[in-house]
């Protein structure tokens, strides 16, 4: 294994034209694609592809909080579990919660706790599961963005959707939405989550250093980016729920294909008839 700590920072992250490794300008984001309602068993779900990140989010609830001693008689708990698949990174990740994923789970739970109307569901819990299938830096932002639309899909009342994006500094330049190499060899990384409607900040973490001016610039950039992500979230939700009349007429008139064989009963059921008649 490489001793990452002692590699010299000789990787050139920004070329002479001011473009990044993948040809982006500093204020460009990676391509994002999101889809709502991808899982049948969960109450709400979403899948997001954000550059090289592939993230699945599922929401269950409101449901009874377990263990019972955690229940709050005045409001619902908002619990999140962020988990990385062993195959999500180049070197196999040891499965299970570690220091990093426990922290991310905590900050994401707290971000959602302030948008969900949890007092409508006393004693209950809203459980959010974020599974990172493939990681390429900025997974907590992708996870938050996906979980937010999964919550809306689950019919959980909220003040607004939550949108999130990261910003950072590479080769001394403030850049939006870092990818893996930029994150590893860059100078700073700062994930931000906001309520786009009001501009309230729900999550802000920083790794590395930014000067006050750089911070202001970075924050302005990320705020604009979050506005764009918010629109994508709304489009994804509308696409899932609004089906126009013409799309409807294109659908086949038949019922959906039979998913399971019809129940077969060999023996007559041993249940008494409704109105008390004795079968002959």
């Amino acid at each position: 294994m490489e001793d990452v700590e002692h590699i010299e920072k000789k990787m050139k992250l920004i070329d002479e034209n001011g473009l990044r490794l993948d040809g982006r300008k500093p204020e460009d984001m990676r391509p994002i694609r999101m889809e709502v309602g991808v899982l049948k068993r969960a109450d709400g779900s979403a899948y997001i592809e954000w550059g090289g990140n592939k993230v699945l989010a599922a929401v269950y609830g409101p449901r009874e909080a377990h263990p019972r001693h955690l229940q709050d008689p005045t409001k619902a708990l908002v619990q999140c579990r962020y988990n990385m698949a062993p195959f999500s990174v180049t070197e196999r990740k040891r499965p299970g919660p570690d220091r990093r994923s426990v922290e991310i789970s905590k900050v994401i739970s707290e971000a959602f706790d302030s948008v969900v109307f949890s007092e409508q569901f006393p004693r209950a819990s809203v459980d959010i599961f974020i599974e990172i299938l493939q990681a390429d830096a900025g997974t907590r932002c992708a996870g938050l963005t996906a979980a937010s639309i999964a919550l809306a899909d689950a019919g959980i009342p909220m003040r607004d959707l939550v949108a999130s994006c990261a910003v950072g500094k590479i080769d001394g330049v403030v850049c939006l939405d870092l990818r893996k190499e930029e994150d590893n060899y860059g100078d700073a990384d700062m994930p931000v989550a906001m309520i786009p409607r009001t501009g309230e900040v729900l999550l802000l973490q920083m790794d590395g250093h930014l000067t006050l001016d750089e911070f202001d610039k970075a924050f302005g950039m990320v705020k604009d980016a979050i506005g764009g992500i918010y629109e994508m979230q709304k489009d994804a939700l509308r696409k899932r729920y609004a089906v126009t009349a013409e799309e409807f007429s294109d659908l086949p008139e038949q019922a959906p294909p039979e998913r399971r064989a019809p129940p077969e009963r060999e023996a007559p059921p041993e249940m008494p008839p409704e109105d008390g008649e004795v079968p002959q």
């Binding site: 809306a152 003040r159 786009p196 509308r238 009349a245």
Partner: peptide
């Protein structure tokens, strides 16, 4: 109408 107005949390 053929299309109903869908609203999203926070709208």
């Amino acid at each position: 109408p053929a299309r109903r107005e869908i609203v999203i949390p926070g709208e």
